[in-house]
């Protein structure tokens, strides 16, 4: 059981090709990290996997536990177990966090089944406490007026509530101060399980010191050009990405 991406090509709609043959295999239970210089296609990969309408798949495939990901709509992909923690979580004015989460969880139940509101709020408050979030955030509009760090925590809260099988964290560390980074990472680590995989996209070693990946990939110019263990993180921290640019001019 894996997330298997084969020879994936994708472009911005009516624009340039950004992914140029990505190959990845993320088995259940593993944490994979993707690093790479700016503009290499890391965020594009996450958005393409989730079905963002600005991108178009021009070749290749992605399978999640044997299911063709690209045959599913955006919401179906989520209900099938895929989750994206956004690099820039979106503000949704007027929609409270609680209503938003309830709608997302209700969508996962059979039509005739009603979400247990008491259990829902109990779970929501417990997760918020775990992430150091003020309970007042349940009544606030989704991400509206949140600081960068609060938005990231809110995304991780959603991930905890939705309990996905494949979670992509797109630069979750950006905008987080040291304490928030630790709390969020602890939340992610608490979710590590044999039935769940993570794909962590980041520029920095500090996040990977907390969420220690099993496998590290370097994405450059739209392709995975290097795959190794955690040692690769230390190497990049010390030497940057020049070695990649030299090997793949």
């Amino acid at each position: 059981m894996s997330l298997i991406i084969k020879d994936l090509y994708a472009r911005v709609k009516d624009g340039a090709e950004i992914l140029k043959g990505v190959n990845l295999n993320i088995p259940k239970g593993e944490v994979h990290a993707i690093m790479g210089p700016n503009g290499s296609g890391k965020s594009t990969l996450s958005k393409v996997l989730c079905g963002h309408p600005d991108y178009e798949v021009t070749g290749g495939s992605a399978e999640m536990d044997g299911q063709d990901l690209f045959s599913l709509s955006v919401d179906e992909r989520s209900r099938a177990g895929l989750f994206l923690a956004f690099q820039y979580p979106v503000e949704v004015p007027g929609v409270s966090n609680a209503n938003f989460m309830r709608a997302a969880l209700q969508a996962r139940l059979p039509k005739e089944e009603e979400l247990d509101a008491v259990a829902f709020y109990k779970n929501l408050r417990a997760r918020m406490k775990q992430l150091g979030m003020d309970p007042k955030f349940t009544a606030r509009a989704v991400n509206e007026g949140f600081s960068g760090g609060e938005k990231k925590r809110n995304d991780v809260l959603q991930m905890m509530m939705l309990d996905p099988t494949y979670a992509i964290l797109d630069e979750t560390d950006s905008g987080l101060d040291v304490d928030a980074l630790r709390i969020v990472s602890e939340g992610v680590n608490a979710m590590r399980a044999p039935y769940r995989s993570f794909l962590v996209i980041t520029h920095y070693k500090r996040l990977l010191d907390y969420i220690r990946p099993d496998v590290v990939h370097v994405l450059y110019n739209g392709r995975i050009v290097k795959t190794a263990g955690y040692d690769l993180v230390d190497y990049i921290e010390e030497h940057g990405f020049d070695f990649v640019k030299e090997e793949h001019p």
Partner: peptide, 19 residues
Amino acid sequence: QLFYLLSRGIPRHDAQMLV
């Protein structure tokens, strides 16, 4: 905004109504 709600598994019609 719509994509954000869809990405959390909320069906399109419900997501549009929420927004």
